[in-house]
Structure formats: C-alpha cells, structure tokens
C-alpha cells in the first residue's frame, strides 16, 4: 500500500498516468461499440479517429488548429505583457494596490464569454475581437494573482536587501521580481489553460475558422466524431503547452528544485 506523501518513481508515474487514459478510452469504446449509447449522441473511438483523419487530410483542419493557437497565444501574450507589470506594481506599492485592487477584483468576475456579443459590436468579427475575448478573460486574473504573490514576498528577504544597500527600486528589481518569478510563471501556465476555454466560446459565435468554428459546423451535421476529435485536439494542445511550460520553468528556475 502507498503511504501518504511517499514519492513514486518516474517510470511508475508515467505508467500510471498512461493507464488512466487507456482505461478511459476502453470505457468509452465499451459504451459506444457495445451499443449502450446511441451513435447519434456519441461516436465511438474508431469513428472519431477516422473523422479526425478526414478532417486533417481533406478539410484543412490543421489551419483551423493554427488559427486557434495563434488567437490564444496572441491574446494571452497581450494580456501578460500588460498584467504582469501591473500586478508587480500592485504587489509592491500598497497605494497602487488600494487604487486598482477593488476594480480589478470586480472586473475579474465579468464573464469573458458574455463580452462576445459586445465585442462583435465594437470590433467586428475579425481577429481583433477574438484576441480581445482572450485578453479580457486573462488580464484581470493575472493582475490579481501576481499582485498577491508579490505582496506575500518574505519580509526578511526584503529587509536583508535594504541592509545590503538596495534602493526601493533595487528591492523591486532584485528581490520582489526574482523571488516571485517562478510563481508568476506558474500563474501564467494556469491562466493559459483558462484562455483555451474562452477562445472556443469566441469561435462558436461569428467565426469562419478555428477549432470552435469546426465544432459548431459539425453540430449541424450531427458529426459527433468530428466534434469529439476537436475537443480532444484542444486537450492535447493544452497538455503539450503545459508540458512545455513546466519544462521551461524547470530550466529557468533551477533554484526552485535545488
């Protein structure tokens, strides 16, 4: 029996992680191929793979994937560029925090998807509108989470920096930022995951390309295999970006693991 908090080896970890996927697909295949669920509502795994292959080879789904990835990454980077510095300023300077925090806390609860109709009105149905949905969905979350992280910096480290001759700006630049860099990277990883849900919503309405658009098109054709393939593709891209983010963080912040 495993004991609480006891670590497992890398190989066991991978085997266990994969076996759940296998179990999941097996249950799915059993339910659909076994005839327990109507094909109209849920395609079986084999149909899904066939549909997916068709999508990729015949219907140019790869370019849809490309468009969606670019929207997410574009909107997300835009949000990060604005939100990270603001969050750091808010965490470091309490007057700044007192000024912005109430508004940001309020804005954080505005549902990004509810902005879609408004944004279509403002920005049309072009790329700008898609980017803005992602932006609105991410920017306030990042600001707030970064501000909290920076605000919780160990006080004794800040004091040590002052006694070593740091100026106020030096403390921000050489203590608050590096001390919280791994946490900020972790926040970005988390929010990027959420950005994926916003992009699909943005693409479901008023869009002529992207994964979300394909899913809506497939719904009209009752092509559940295609729809599920689209959803799974999003999951896989999310998994890959997560993996890359983690690998990148490990490389960037070796002291965290030391």
């Amino acid at each position: 029996m495993p004991r609480p908090l006891e670590p497992v080896s890398q190989s066991t970890r991978i085997t266990l992680g994969i076996s759940f996927f296998v179990l999941f697909v097996a249950a799915w295949a059993f339910a659909t191929l076994g005839g327990f669920v109507s094909r109209t509502f849920l395609a079986d795994p084999i149909t899904m793979v066939q549909d997916g292959w068709l999508l990729l080879t015949r219907f140019g789904f790869l370019s849809d994937i490309g468009v969606t990835v670019w929207r997410v990454v574009g909107g997300f980077i835009l949000a990060a560029i604005i939100a990270v510095p603001l969050g750091i300023l808010m965490g470091a300077y309490k007057t700044f925090e007192a000024f912005l925090e109430p508004f940001v806390s309020f804005a954080r609860y505005l549902p990004a998807s509810a902005f879609v109709p408004l944004l279509i009105l403002w920005a049309g149905i072009g790329e700008m509108q898609k980017l803005l949905v992602i932006f609105i969905g991410s920017v306030f979350q990042i600001i707030l989470m970064v501000a909290v992280a920076v605000g919780n910096t160990r006080r004794d480290l800040v004091e040590a920096a002052y006694t070593l001759g740091s100026s106020d700006r030096g403390v921000v630049r050489r203590v608050l930022i590096p001390a919280n860099a791994p946490e900020i990277a972790e926040i970005l990883r988390l929010v990027l995951g959420w950005a994926w849900t916003y992009v699909i919503v943005a693409e479901l309405i008023g869009s002529s390309s992207g994964i979300g658009h394909m899913i809506i098109d497939s719904q009209a054709l009752l092509a559940t295999g295609q729809m599920i393939f689209g959803i799974i593709v999003i999951g896989i891209i999310g998994l890959i970006s997560d993996f890359l983010f983690k690998a990148f963080n490990r490389k960037l912040f070796p002291w965290r693991l030391a």
Binding site: D156, A161, T163, W255
Partner: peptide, 29 residues
C-alpha cells in the same frame, strides 16, 4: 543602508542566487 551590515537569526539568503551571487549582492548594488 549598506554602512550597517546585518545578519539575521533566520536564514535570509536569497534562494534564487548562488552562494557567490549572494555574497556579491551588495557589491552589485
């Protein structure tokens, strides 16, 4: 200020800097 060096009871080395970089902190500032 840098004219009064302090060593605290708790461990206050900067965890993201190596030992050499920690010692060099004030000099860099």
């Amino acid at each position: 200020g840098a004219d009064r060096g302090m060593v605290f009871q708790s461990y206050t080395l900067f965890p993201w800097l190596t030992i050499a970089e920690n010692i060099a902190y004030g000099l860099r500032e």
